[in-house]
Design a binder for these strands. Structure first.
Lengths: 208, 208
DNA sequence: CAGCGACTGGACTATTTCGTCCTTTTCCCA
DNA sequence: TGGGAAAAGGACGAAATAGTCCAGTCGCTG
């Protein structure tokens, strides 16, 4: 957690923390749907039902809010992926992981893309701090995938010569690129196709 | 070309076309570096050295300008890729194509990502027309990749059972996902890794 | 070469949006 | 239970940004 209890060493009551969380949650939802740039502070206030002074009480400005949003959705995504991937050690398990993501994406017909990926493209070239946070989050997410591949290695289903880190990078890129194509096509199919290709490659290493 | 000679069926002289092109080129450059949302019309005017009335003379508003930018960078990218991929029919050729893209991305340390991909995430959920144009462009780009794979099939270096369309989708997703990771990490390495994995998979099909 | 329409310049308005300020209410703790 | 600090509400100002308007210039075409 990069953001401390409050933004200026102020004391924070339970009520204040709740309000702060409500602001961040509303901002995260809006920025996911509308994009970071087109989401105004007034939008966030209306959606969260708090007033402007509260927002500036908890955050120094929009940039600080965006960084809090990055932390928030990052935590959510990592937690979800940890649950999905934490104990997986088979190709079948990766396939189930794939199915969950694809089905979820198909529900919204590919719209909005990956919560973390969309944030990354919108923010990376504009806010160095947020970019570094996102970079760490992607690294952590890739680490979870690499963990799966290492466990597959330990089970002997993947040869020890395979570079699990590089495979994890490729799998993550396939996922993110798939999200992007699905978002543009408004159809989850290309995302399914791209992950399938990455998984097929991993599987082909097993057979070898 | 979706945009006709002018935006309202008006006649267009050589001078007018030149001004229009200058506006679009400046807007494309700015939006690539600063992002679509944070690029203001005043920015475009200052960079292109034209006045506001000229912009509104040639475009109905910012949305129309963005669509023109999409067409413009789309045309540039497709033309570049057509030159790069049009005659490729070997794995070695694909590797050269990869090297050019990676080196170019490394020059800017991963920043800004893919000109088309960044545009796509920023615009897809906000402007249906622009989204469809981008979707068509990605399809065309993928078609060029599929063409390479088909020629490889014709040469017998790729088995006829391989689905060239699906492989092209996977390769495009690896490229776009790689751009995204590189942009977030400010390092072209993950992009190289992800394309390499996709190419390795294609190559492994040849060996089979 | 004359006239009409495309083209250009820049001032002007309306609106949005960020950020500030001050008052009132609520909550914690002695 | 009362004092003080945090929290909440909302009006207000300043700046940026989209979009309008009109007067003047340039260039094609009859």
């Amino acid at each position: 957690m990069t953001t401390a209890d409050s933004h200026n060493g102020r004391r924070l009551t339970a009520r204040g923390a709740k309000t702060r969380a409500r602001i961040v949650a509303a901002a995260a939802d809006l920025m996911y749907v509308k994009g970071v740039g087109t989401t105004t502070l007034d939008d966030v206030l209306a959606a969260s039902g708090v007033s402007k002074s509260q927002l500036y009480h908890h955050f120094d400005g929009k940039d600080a809010l965006v960084r809090a949003v990055v932390d928030h959705v990052g935590e959510r995504v990592i937690e979800r992926e940890r649950r999905s991937l934490g104990c997986v050690s088979t190709i079948r398990g990766l396939r189930r992981w794939r199915n969950a993501l694809v089905q979820n994406n198909a529900l919204q017909h590919g719209a909005y893309g990956c919560a973390l990926g969309s944030l990354a493209t919108e923010v990376s070239d504009h806010d160095a701090l947020a970019r570094r946070a996102l970079s760490r989050l992607f690294t952590e997410w890739q680490g979870l995938l690499a963990g799966v591949l290492r466990r597959m290695q330990d089970r002997g289903v993947l040869p020890p010569t395979a570079s699990t880190d590089q495979l994890a990078t490729g799998l993550m890129a396939a996922l993110q690129g798939g999200y992007l194509l699905a978002q543009t096509a408004r159809d989850a199919t290309p995302m399914a196709t791209s992950i399938d290709m990455a998984l097929a490659h991993i599987e082909s290493l097993s057979a070898g």
